[in-house]
């Protein structure tokens, strides 16, 4: 059983390196706004792999799941509220 979980860690590692190669290759082509979207999506998938398997989130209890989600809940909220300000400012002055 210990052997199986070690093998799983190596598989996750290979997946992470492939995702790294993918994100660098995709950035060589200019797709406008899509570049940021793809780059952040790949970073999100890498984060999910690291959190679920390296950080054992898949086998944790409920309250740990809640706190891990709290971490990624507040940051987008911060960004959305800041940009709600900046985007509307530009419209007023422009």
């Amino acid at each position: 059983m210990a052997h199986d979980s070690t093998r799983g860690l190596y598989l996750v590692f290979v997946a992470l390196l492939l995702l790294l190669a993918a994100t660098v290759l995709v950035a060589q082509v200019d797709w406008g706004v899509l570049n940021v979207a793809v780059a952040l999506s790949v970073a999100g998938i890498k984060t999910a792999l690291i959190a679920l398997f390296f950080m054992h989130l898949h086998s944790e209890r409920g309250s740990v799941h809640i706190y891990s989600l709290v971490g990624i809940f507040w940051l987008p909220l911060l960004l959305v509220l800041i940009f709600a300000d900046y985007v509307t400012r530009a419209q007023v002055s422009g």
């Binding site: 209890r61 309250s63 740990v64 971490g71 990624i72 940051l75 960004l79 800041i82 940009f83």
Partner: peptide, 30 residues
């Protein structure tokens, strides 16, 4: 459970520690 939960709470606060800088980055990049 208590030990790992404590670390996750700390890491959630760390997300916002970096988050302030990232928000500044996002505004200026825009």
């Amino acid at each position: 459970h208590a030990a790992t939960l404590g670390m996750w709470v700390f890491l959630a606060s760390e997300v916002l520690f970096f988050g302030g800088l990232l928000a500044g980055y996002a505004v200026y990049r825009a």
